[in-house]
Design a protein around this nucleic acid. Structure first.
Length: 526
RNA sequence: CGGGGUGUAGCUCAGCUUGGUAGAGCGCUUGCCUUGGGAGCAAGAAGUCGUCGGUUCAAUUCCGGCCACCCCGACCA
């Protein structure tokens, strides 16, 4: 078998790119920093959208759409936001090209916009400008709106899914009559993200506020979910911001209260992006390729009919179709988003079975079914059910090898497959949680802390670090920006968040000796 | 924006030192053969050698400018 994927232990970043390529998730495009999301990758995004959108609707939100272009002056109205995003804004200055025969196409210098437009890096400004006309009375509140969109942030260095110049996301923007209501919304939505991460993505997350140094430009505070990747690095996977009255003041959004007073509205915003796909890959996938939890998988089940001759193939194909129909007709349930089980039949009987199996494996199909002449010749016809979450290679996970393939009577296969899909979802979450918990430690002294974040001189970033080197480290912190910056500089570790369910006892900051209110989580981050 | 590197077939790259108009592997097409873990054989299609200029009888090769991309730092979902 041609090994196309660099093992994780050898070079984790390279492995990540190999998986994306071999699984057909995305490609780099000719446009710098922008990716092409391929069907297998986009299907995962669609499943994410479906799951999240359902949860947004269930919590009372509705979808709307706002313009891609934002007048430059809008961004300027909120000072922190202008400062935060100024350096990564794409700007539109002209509205016309000049096309003359025999001449190269060029920008028409006579068609300059009076005011440049920026391509949205996030939509708070244009949305709050719009809310000004939507909100007059307390009866107009709360305003609970989400939009699915693309945004552009002109990043210096990009990586497929994790950081691209253009990315797809959703951004919720809500307006409330009171601070308490807005804060409750902020908390509710970060919990929605946590639930989505754990129940759909099978990714365990830490939930809690960011430090002031890490919060969103323009926010009073930011709540986030943080996941651990297989290299021990942290990935911020979703954020929910309490924006106070900052944007209401910037765009003069006032409403009349029940007792006829004027007040500025209170705001939240929250977002999650295609970065989630990167996190999904780095949490579950293995050296054989992509592993996707069933709730997000593009295809749940692929059935591979086998056979040398037409005489062998025809019955195998017929049995495959029958099983596919049974699976598709399965009663719809919440686990599958009330949609049919996604089954495909691999009709490529001319390719070798090994090639076909390998292809589905690298592409992350949770369950593969084999139906061939040997199975159909039995008194009670059977099929082989192979689970993607169990390695088939003895040398890699010998203890799991016995579970790699199971022979199942065809008559029961649909039932067992549906049950296995749910089991895979559970196994992936448990595995990821165990992995994270085993790599979460506490540092009580500076020496301990330093030991967890080795920075070896002359080393090229973390590529040469052992895959097992990095951890989530709980440690005390004196609460100052200076200390946070110092730690980042010395150890390349940042404070990921102050987890809601982490230890909250006060102590002493190991970096400065000053008192600390509670422990926080440090990690290297993407 | 600083440091380094690379541009040759769809992809990964060799060739350039010592100039004479281009190769391999993979992929693709066709045929034969093969089928329960990534088979084999044969034939075939495919490249203005990043770009502009210089040197030369002759430039993918030598020289210079430009452009693009990649990696490492700073910045970031």
């Amino acid at each position: 078998m041609a090994e196309k994927i660099t093992p994780r232990a050898e070079n984790y970043p390279k492995w990540y790119l190999n998986v994306i390529q071999e699984a057909g998730l995305a490609d780099n495009s000719d446009v710098r920093g922008c990716m092409v999301i391929k069907p297998n990758g986009y299907a995962i995004w669609e499943n994410m959208q479906r799951g999240l959108d359902r949860m947004f609707k269930d919590t009372g939100h509705v979808n709307a759409y706002f313009p891609l272009f934002i007048p430059m002056s809008y961004l300027a109205k909120e000072e922190e936001m202008a400062e935060g995003f100024a350096k990564e804004c794409a700007v539109v200055t002209h509205y016309r090209l000049k096309a003359e025969k025999g001449q190269p196409l060029k920008v028409d210098p006579t068609a300059e916009l009076e005011e440049p437009l920026i391509v949205r890096p996030t939509s708070e400004t244009i949305i709050w400008r719009t809310y000004k006309s939507w909100i007059q009375s307390w009866r107009d509140l709360p305003l609970l709106i989400n939009q699915w969109a693309n945004v552009v942030r002109w990043e210096m260095r990009t990586r497929l899914f994790l950081r691209t110049a253009e990315f797809l996301w959703q951004e919720g923007h809500t307006a409330h009559a009171t601070a308490a209501e807005a804060e409750a919304e902020t908390l509710q939505m970060v919990k929605v993200y946590a639930k989505f991460a754990e129940e759909f993505m099978a990714v365990p997350v830490l939930v809690g506020p960011k430090t002031d140094g890490q919060k969103f430009p323009g926010a009073i505070y930011t709540l986030c979910i943080e996941a651990m990747m297989q290299d021990g690095k942290a990935l911020q996977a979703g954020t929910s911001h309490f924006l106070g009255q900052n944007f209401a003041k910037a765009f003069d959004v006032k409403f009349t209260t029940a007792d006829n007073k004027k007040e500025f509205a209170w705001a939240t915003s929250w977002g999650a992006s295609t970065r989630l796909i990167g996190g999904l890959i780095m949490t579950h996938s293995d050296d054989q390729g992509l592993v996707v939890p069933p709730r997000l998988a593009a295809t749940h089940v692929v059935i591979c009919p086998l056979g040398k001759t037409e005489d062998e193939r025809a019955p195998a194909l017929a049995a495959a179709k029958k099983l596919a129909d049974e699976l598709k007709a399965f009663p719809r349930e919440e686990f599958f988003g009330y949609e049919p089980i996604r089954v495909t039949i691999d009709n490529d009987l001319k390719s070798s079975p090994g090639y076909r199996f390998g292809l589905h494996e690298v592409r992350g199909v949770p369950i593969r079914v084999e139906i061939g002449p040997k199975d159909l010749a039995k008194e009670i016809p059977t099929c082989i059910v192979a689970r993607r979450d169990f390695q088939y290679r003895v040398e890699i996970e010998p203890d799991l090898n016995h579970q790699k393939k199971a022979e199942t009577p065809l008559s029961q296969a649909a039932l067992e497959i549906a049950a296995s899909l749910k089991d895979i979802q559970r196994v992936l979450f448990d595995r990821a949680k165990k992995y994270r918990d085993a790599r979460t430690v506490t540092a009580n002294t500076l020496e301990e802390f330093a030991g967890y974040f080795p920075v070896k001189a002359g080393e090229k970033d973390d590529e040469e670090l052992d895959l097992n080197a990095l951890k989530f480290v709980y440690a005390h912190w004196d609460g100052t920006r200076e200390t946070e910056d110092l730690v980042q500089k010395q150890y390349k570790a940042t404070i990921r968040c102050l987890p809601f369910d982490g230890p909250t006892e006060p102590g002493t900051c190991p970096f400065t000796g000053r008192p600390s209110a509670r422990m926080v989580v440090f990690a290297r981050a993407y």
